[in-house]
Design a protein around this nucleic acid. Structure first.
Lengths: 253, 253
DNA sequence: TGTTTAATTTGGTCTGACCAAAACAGATTA
DNA sequence: TAATCTGTTTTGGTCAGACCAAATTAAACA
């Protein structure tokens, strides 16, 4: 029975005919697709655990080896969460974790020439856009959130550690205004990827104060519903930040 | 000698002490990190093939099983390219392929409520920003590229197949203006992820013509260096596209 | 020298085994 | 009865050795 097992799966996959175009057939891929489909279709719900590897192997008529490969692929692609030693659990599709799967590639991209600048420039563009949008359509509670973040920022001028947090929080508030969950995820990714540069920069109360003023200028422009001013204030703010980064890492870039 | 192999690696990893904080130790992770580091450091150059699995297993004092897991992880994260049956090859860090690693997660995200809209909204924001930037600082050759794309677009109005291509090309031209390689990659990702919706929409010469006029309006505004007009023209264009998408997929969203 | 053929390498898969941690069930105790 | 401890079973992580088919290389041949 076992000896015919392998053949049967090959027959099955051939019958399903998803990819019959002559290219190499890997059993692991089939298992991967099988579970990816079951997850996407909702057959396997969020938080639900996958069957044990041995069971999968039996039902799919493959060895545990290929099951492990498939599970690993599922995990690497963020479809499941496989903490070592635990049963893999279906993970709800989540914007935050989506960006996390980029970590290793991005860290490589940041290493190559101009990598950091390329990324930072996209950030400038995104935030400039967010600033405009905030100025044009921020709701009352959005403004309140911003104001609170700004105040917390001001209070932390003399505590560089705390200032960094409130700084991040202020920008985060900006990203949350559109109400689109993609943006907070983008912000999280930016802070994670650029934190190496940021955290190595000298932190001084004077500099904190300047940054606070920059934030205030952005906020004021948003409050005045002045899109152009908001964008400009933000660009000045981030341009200054970039100058700092450049100065700090002059040798490495 | 082999019997002591396993112990030696454990000793080694313990000695290196990268992660000694009590959490589970997976040999596969060690091998993964080892090669990720070698790739990032340039020790293994782009296009260079990894050693054969059996050799890695020997030099790292682990079984081929864990080598395979590590290689698979490397592949899934986009650090190497592992075509079935071939030696894995170090892949140059590349913005395009970075986004490709997101495919499976994104396809899941698009399935959930409002997923497509969330993504499309980010696209609107990005392109609005690009339009502004184009209007403010497009160079002569940028304008020429846009103009050519626009003309090709016009010529293809009666050929819906070709129109789709030239349409994409026009937007691509917009993404290439900043000269930041991240943007073309983003564009590629957008078209890949949203193509299912787009390709199922009815294509008619009248509609093509409307889209062409929309493109022309964007181009004209850019040519006039009118940022606000460029942004507005683009927003109108994409809003109309979204309306179409919504109409086509009314039942599924 | 170019082409065909045989030998070898190498990735993909299988089987069966072992270990340690996790999950489970049962006994023990408060 | 509820909480805690304990021993058994399950399960993931790893290993070893084997086989196959495709890919690579070496050899033989034309």
């Amino acid at each position: 029975m076992n000896s015919t097992g392998k053949l049967s799966i090959q027959k099955e996959t051939a019958a399903s005919g998803i990819k019959d175009t002559g290219d190499r057939h890997r059993a692991a891929d089939d298992v991967f697709r099988y579970f990816a489909a079951r997850i996407n279709s909702g057959d396997l719900k969020d938080g639900e655990a996958l069957p044990p590897e041995r069971e999968i192997a039996e039902t799919c008529h493959v060895s545990r080896t290929v099951v492990r490969e498939a599970v690993l692929a599922l995990s690497n692609k963020g479809l499941i969460e496989a903490r070592p030693g635990f049963r893999p659990v279906v993970r709800k599709a989540n914007y935050d974790t989506a960006f996390e799967t980029l970590d290793s590639v991005v860290s490589r991209l940041l290493l190559q020439d101009g990598g950091v600048k390329n990324l930072f420039d996209t950030r400038i563009m995104v935030e400039a856009s967010l600033a405009r949008q905030a100025a044009s359509s921020a709701q009352k509670d959005d403004l309140l959130t911003l104001r609170n973040a700004l105040d917390a920022n001001q209070d932390a001028i003399d505590d560089s550690e705390k200032f960094y947090e409130t700084d991040t929080a202020f920008h985060a508030a900006l990203y949350s205004i559109p109400g689109n969950p993609v943006f907070p995820a983008i912000h999280k990714a930016y802070t994670a990827w650029l934190s190496p540069q940021w955290s190595m920069m000298p932190r001084l109360p004077e500099r904190n104060r300047l940054n606070y003023y920059a934030h205030k200028a952005i906020f004021d422009a948003i409050l005045m519903r002045n899109q152009d001013a908001a964008e400009q204030a933000l660009r000045i703010h981030l341009a200054a930040a970039w100058t700092q980064i450049e100065k700090t890492f002059a040798d490495q870039m």
